[in-house]
């Protein structure tokens, strides 16, 4: 089961763009756009999906300690919209969507004032 991922090679990674807006950029070093290379498979060998990405972002990209402003009960906090290539992630299977190379994932907070 746990096939410890050794050094990453190019074919083992996915190049994606992750964007944060609506105030979320505040939690990610005030950068709106991040180009990332993420492992194509999880440690258990399954394809990296949105749930794994969100976890990855929390572990690796988010410097802010207030994780609960981004995730709540193991998933993206209610009030944060997730768009996968500009489509609502609800159309793509939410957590279970398997990420493709070149994907653009956008997180928009609606929690901020208007």
């Amino acid at each position: 089961m746990s096939d410890q991922a050794p050094k990453m090679k190019d074919e083992d990674t996915l190049s994606i763009t992750v964007e944060f807006t609506g105030g979320l950029e505040m939690l990610f070093s005030n950068e709106r756009k991040h180009s990332l290379s993420i492992p194509i498979r999880n440690e258990d060998g399954t394809r990296t999906n949105m749930a794994a990405l969100v976890d990855y972002l929390c572990q690796n990209l988010m410097k802010d300690p207030r994780k609960d402003l981004f995730i709540l009960d193991g998933t993206v906090r209610p009030g944060i919209l997730v768009l996968i290539n500009d489509a609502d992630w609800e159309l793509e299977g939410e957590d279970k969507y398997e990420i493709e190379s070149g994907d653009n994932i956008l997180f928009v907070s609606t929690l901020h004032g208007g």
């Binding site: 919209l81 768009l83 928009v108 609606t110 208007g114």
Partner: peptide
Amino acid sequence: YEKEIVLYAHHKRLDYFTTECIYS
């Protein structure tokens, strides 16, 4: 819905400002 307002702004590429009031 707030969700639709945000999506409208996003897909219309409207120029809006998003930072929470620092006191709120």
